[in-house]
């Protein structure tokens, strides 16, 4: 007797696909849609988990763009605190697809709205990336000049990248009422207490997430004169630090990740130029029994990141250098070592 399931591969069944397999080496979990060609220029952005992907791809010989590299004289240990080397531009974490779309739009906006700048203690913060200047800018004018330069560099990024690796992180966001701009961090965390009432909380729906990403794709196609950009989407496995929905944080986190995972799936299903890489599944796989998470049950341990990247490079092999050896990977770190703005919310927890 046969059924629709008779001829399916092992990967189609929970027992043979997951339960009987090691969480450290899930066979055939990811089948790529397309190869990443050695000469493709790669952009990276998203929530903090994307920093791991960017770093490992760079270390493994991929041409990961960095349009705002750190000045040569800056101590390496300060790169991250100034927002350098985290992504392809110095934009910090982009948790939501709307923020991503708005960033692209602002880079090409010929008549931009006034920048949002928060002031605290005589220092000034670029609201769209409040953590790229540890002590804030010296003046409002300096913050504006820094943002002008940032957007100038992003134009090059968005025009030259062949593929963009984007990690979806959150659905919850704070939106500037008047302009509709999404900010990466709630007012009052780094600065902006005095203008908190100018912002409103929003929890994006599946439709929001998908339509914002599609709008970003359209925008890029338009500024690139019809040339599509490819996207490799991932969903951050890192649970929410806190929720402003009024729900329990576990329920809110599950909702958020479910929406993002569904959105990534829909986008992948409906666009040849979009692929989905299952880093979320690798880390949250029940077979791992939570061992990829640090004791705070949130940060992803080095071992987890290693499995994610091993799976990734099994499909997209490291680009071999001229000497025939792979680049020496830097010591992997856990998510605590990458810059997560939202971790600052923990300071408000009891």
């Amino acid at each position: 007797m046969t059924s629709f399931y008779s001829d399916l591969e092992e990967r189609a069944f929970w027992k043979t696909g997951v339960a009987d397999k090691s969480a450290l080496a899930l066979a055939d979990l990811y089948r790529k849609k397309w190869d990443i060609q050695p000469d493709w220029k790669i952009g990276t952005a998203g929530s903090c988990f994307a920093q791991h992907i960017a770093r490992h791809m760079r270390q493994n010989g991929y041409s990961v763009l960095d349009v705002e590299p750190a000045p040569m004289g800056l101590a390496p240990e300060l790169h991250q605190s100034f927002g350098f080397g985290m992504y392809s531009g110095r934009y910090g974490n982009l948790y939501t697809t709307r923020q991503f779309r708005q960033l692209i739009a602002s880079a090409f906006d010929k008549d931009p709205e006034p920048y949002l700048i928060w002031e605290k203690g005589g220092r000034f913060f670029d609201v769209m990336r409040p953590n790229i200047e540890p002590a804030g800018f010296e003046s409002r004018e300096e913050a504006v000049l820094a943002r002008d330069y940032h957007l100038e560099r992003l134009r090059e990024l968005f025009l030259t990248a062949d593929v963009f690796v984007f990690t979806m992180g959150l659905t919850e966001a704070w939106v500037h009422r008047e302009s509709g701009r999404v900010v990466p961090l709630a007012p009052g965390v780094v600065a902006g207490e005095d203008v908190a009432d100018e912002y409103v909380f929003e929890n994006f729906s599946l439709e929001d997430v998908v339509s914002e990403f599609r709008a970003a794709m359209d925008l890029l196609r338009s500024v690139r004169r019809g040339q599509d950009m490819r996207f490799l989407l991932t969903v951050s496995p890192v649970p929410l630090t806190a929720t402003a929905t009024g729900q329990h944080v576990l329920a809110a986190s599950t909702y958020s990740k479910a929406v993002l995972r569904t959105a990534a799936g829909q986008l992948c299903e409906s666009h040849d130029t979009v692929d989905y890489f299952p880093s979320f599944e690798i880390i949250t796989n029940p077979a791992a029994r939570g061992t990829f998470f640090a004791p705070n049950l949130r940060s992803v341990l080095k071992e987890g990141v290693d499995v994610v990247m091993k799976t990734f490079f099994a499909a997209h092999p490291p680009q071999i250098t001229e000497l025939g050896t792979e680049a020496e990977p830097a010591p992997a770190r856990n998510v605590d070592d990458v810059q997560c703005d939202e971790q600052m919310l923990e300071a408000f927890g009891r």
Binding site: M72, E138, A146, D148, H150
Partner: peptide, 14 residues
């Protein structure tokens, strides 16, 4: 202060 051949915008804090 340079990054590759580029002269970036350098803030006071940087």
């Amino acid at each position: 202060y340079q990054a590759n051949a580029e002269v970036p915008f350098v803030s006071s804090g940087l």
